[in-house]
């Protein structure tokens, strides 16, 4: 397995995201000798000022992206650029997401192989398993990916994951590849659907269902990404704490008022309403109905228990402080 002594140049794709920002700062703190290149088509909100960190505003499907690989000779690529559904209107942007998440990822992986990158870590999501009524609790990595069974809008999530895992096994003798499927990452710097849901006052709360959730704090997730570089071999890994909390308890803990609404009404309302107060794509509503709890035994074999420093309540507490 690759060690930090072999890593001189790192590419972080999706550097404008909150998780990428924390990961970059942790990485440079622990390994100041490593050169980090962060790219994102979006402006970087809080660039880290360090001589070994460089930010470039670019799309990773353009020709100059390949030039970057040629010139920088990356040893490690962190692909944190999966386009989330947080900013999607109910059904919009699907084409854009498929392009970024599937075609874009394929291009990144091919470049990694062509330019002899030693390790690539891809951030997928627990959403790939889908929120279905017959989900067992503690879904393992070999469980079928059923997210798009009911909602074709989730095709990009599943296809990206499958593309990465197929590619990973096909090229395992040439490049170390990790596909991570984290539970809901929450934290003040993460602007995903779940963080937004937990911090929005008067958000609807299912009155007739109360699914369980696993939350991981953004700092823990960033630390695990760093741990994965030197400690975790090629493979697929769920990332989640042992515990879980019901959505109702989580909302109560956050101390924000909620509006209890039966799911049947919520489905109808979400199709029509998209307000600045509550943006939640209707095809993700099943995640507020049925649990999707993932098993973490595989990752713990390599990084142990101590990687999860914050309990779910502590993670929520930290989110509340913001």
């Amino acid at each position: 397995m690759i060690g930090f002594k072999n890593i001189k140049s790192v590419l972080i794709i999706g550097a404008a995201g909150g998780l990428a920002e924390i990961t970059a700062s942790l990485l440079i703190k622990e390994h100041p000798e490593v050169r980090i290149t962060g790219i994102d088509p979006r402006p970087i909100p809080h660039p880290i000022r360090h001589e070994n960190i460089e930010y470039l505003k670019m799309r990773f499907t353009r020709t100059k992206f390949e030039k970057l690989f040629r010139e920088k000779q990356f040893d490690l690529v962190l692909h944190l650029a999966r386009m989330s559904h947080a900013d999607s209107s109910t059904h919009g942007k699907m084409e854009k997401r498929l392009d970024a998440n599937v075609i874009g990822t394929k291009r990144i992986l091919d470049l990694c192989l062509k330019y002899e990158v030693k390790k690539v870590i891809i951030l997928s999501t627990y959403h790939v398993y889908g929120a279905l009524n017959d989900n067992p609790t503690f879904i393992t990595e070999d469980f079928p990916l059923r997210a798009s069974i009911r909602y074709p809008e989730l095709r990009d999530v599943v296809e990206m994951d499958q593309l990465c895992t197929n590619w990973m096994w096909k090229n395992q003798s040439d490049i170390e590849t990790l596909v991570l499927r984290p539970c809901a990452i929450i934290g003040p710097q993460i602007q995903n659907t779940m963080t937004r849901y937990l911090t929005t006052p008067y958000a609807p709360l299912p009155a007739d269902f109360n699914p369980m959730f696993q939350y991981i704090h953004e700092f823990d997730m960033a630390k695990i990404l760093i741990d994965c570089i030197a400690k975790v071999p090629t493979g697929l890994y769920n990332i989640a704490p042992d515990e879980a909390i019901s959505v109702r308890e989580a909302r109560n803990f956050m101390g924000l008022p909620s509006i209890p609404i039966p799911m049947a009404i919520l489905y109808g309302a979400a199709k029509i309403i998209s307000s600045p107060l509550w943006r939640f794509p209707d095809y993700l509503l099943d995640y507020l109905k049925y649990s999707c709890i993932i098993d973490n035994n595989e990752i713990k074999k390599h990084i142990g228990n101590s990687a999860f420093r914050f309990s779910i309540h502590e993670s929520l507490e930290l989110l509340k402080l913001e």
């Binding site: 009524n133 067992p136 609790t137 007739d208 269902f209 109360n210 039966p262």
Partner: peptide, 23 residues
């Protein structure tokens, strides 16, 4: 049973689980 509004939730909160081998 797990698809039933209110009843499924009430049962789960009381300890019921989906009859699945893994569970």
């Amino acid at each position: 049973f797990t698809t039933l509004p209110f009843i499924g939730m009430w049962a789960a909160e009381g300890g019921a689980v989906l009859g699945d081998r893994q569970n």
